[in-house]
Amino acid sequence: MDINSPKIIVIGTSAGGMQALTLLLSKLPADLPAAIFIVQHLSNDSSAPFLVNRLNHHTKLTCKVAEHQQAFETGTVYMAPPDRHLILTEKEMLVARGPLENQFRPAIDPLFRSAAAYHGARATGVILTGFLSDGVVGMEFIKRCGGKTVVQHPDDAEYPALPANVIRQVAIDYVVPISDMGEILMKLAHQPDQDSVKVPTDVWQEAQIAQRVMISSVMTSIEELDNIGKRAPYSCPDCGGGLWELSQPNTVKRFRCHSGHAYTKESLMQGMSNSIEETL
Rank of each mutant, 00 (worst) to 15 (best):
L225C: 04
L61E: 06
D31V: 10
L25T: 00
D134I: 13
H58W: 03
K7G: 11
S216E: 11
G242R: 09
V166E: 08
I3P: 10
S275F: 03
G75T: 15
S273K: 13
Q270N: 10
E101W: 00
V170W: 05
T62M: 07
L225T: 03
S46L: 01
I228Y: 14
Q169K: 15
V136I: 04
I38Q: 02
V151I: 07
Q169H: 12
V218C: 07
I178R: 00
I9C: 12
L111K: 00
I9P: 08
H58K: 01
A71R: 03
I87W: 11
K148I: 03
L25R: 00
A117F: 08
N56E: 11
L86F: 09
Q40V: 01
Q19W: 10
D2F: 05
C257G: 06
L88I: 09
D156M: 06
K148S: 14
T220S: 01
G17N: 00
P233E: 02
I276M: 15
A189N: 10
D155K: 08
F255Y: 05
S247F: 02
S43F: 04
Q152G: 06
G75N: 08
V39E: 00
K230Q: 09
T89Y: 12
I178A: 02
V150I: 14
T124D: 02
L21Y: 05
G271L: 12
D238L: 07
I178H: 03
I87R: 03
E158F: 15
A30S: 13
E140S: 07
S5W: 06
A15Q: 10
A48I: 01
P29T: 04
V126I: 08
C239E: 09
W244I: 03
D45V: 01
V136F: 03
V137C: 10
A117N: 03
G229P: 06
G271P: 03
V175A: 07
L23R: 14
K148L: 12
A15W: 02
D202H: 04
V176S: 09
L280Y: 13
Y174H: 15
T124I: 05
I108P: 03
E158P: 10
S47E: 07
A30H: 09
H190A: 13
E92S: 13
V136R: 00
R256N: 05
F141R: 12
M186R: 11
H57R: 15
D156H: 15
A171T: 05
C63R: 00
T74H: 11
C145P: 13
Q70A: 12
N250Q: 12
R231S: 14
K143G: 07
V218A: 07
I172F: 14
R84Q: 05
I215K: 15
I142T: 01
Q205V: 03
A71C: 06
A210D: 12
W244Y: 10
P33A: 14
V213E: 04
P33C: 08
K60G: 06
V175F: 06
Y118R: 12
A71E: 08
K265I: 01
F72D: 04
M214I: 02
G135E: 10
Q208R: 15
F50H: 13
V197C: 03
L86A: 15
